[in-house]
Amino acid sequence: MIRIKNLRAGIGDKEILKGFNLEVKPGEVHAIMGPNGSGKSTLANVLAGKEDYTVTEGEVIFNGKDLLEMSPEDRAREGLFLAFQYPIEIPGVSNINFLKNALSEIRNYRGLPPLEAKDFLALIKEKQAMVELQGGLANRSVNEGFSGGEKKRNEIFQMAVLEPALAILDETDSGLDIDALRVVANGVNKLRNEKRSFIVITHYQRLLDYIIPDFVHVMYQGQIVKSGPKELALELEEKGYDWIKKEDESIV
């Protein structure tokens, strides 16, 4: 699905990703954990194509194509989806309208005609129910006046509509109460299948009680310093990140 090799990237002169490596196969769920400032969100943004970051070294192959050469929209059209850590409010742009256009452009890229209006509405209705997003929210301006939980739910709703091949969830659990967390996790679990992959970025183990990962990676100072099965997350929860930091420094 995606192969990230020796990725180095940062903002201006500041290098944040310092030789990051990861391979995700179809159907796998990888959790990336790590302390604040370890580069988790940078990774998500670099993969989605945010211009503020400069890639200085390395390669990312996504479905056999060079991801870093693509515009952000082409990455989305190839099947990459980023659920933003801080979904922004876009007053005046209707959630539904923009999703409809996005879906049409994605389908057009793949040589498919746009969905018929009634099929699109049926799709919206189905996915809305899946993430328990109230009807009114889908018809409002993108994220405008949404609570923190509603914004995150809206991200999962968009993901459900666009049906990406690889979804990156950037701290989707932050700011969620337990009920919202369960709804979001349920949405993700319903979308899990043998073809679709996820990279779940989180600071806490809590989300991984609901979205069970195949692999857990610990990120520190722009690299993966430890990888393991899902139990690693529990270990991190118990011991915190300090032992990873010490371990990493002793290696150096």
């Binding site: 194509g49 945010k50 952000p72 929209e73 256009n101």
Partner: peptide, 8 residues
């Protein structure tokens, strides 16, 4: 960027 990241 948000809109582009959705494929627009």
């Amino acid at each position: 960027f948000y809109l582009q990241a959705r494929g627009l």
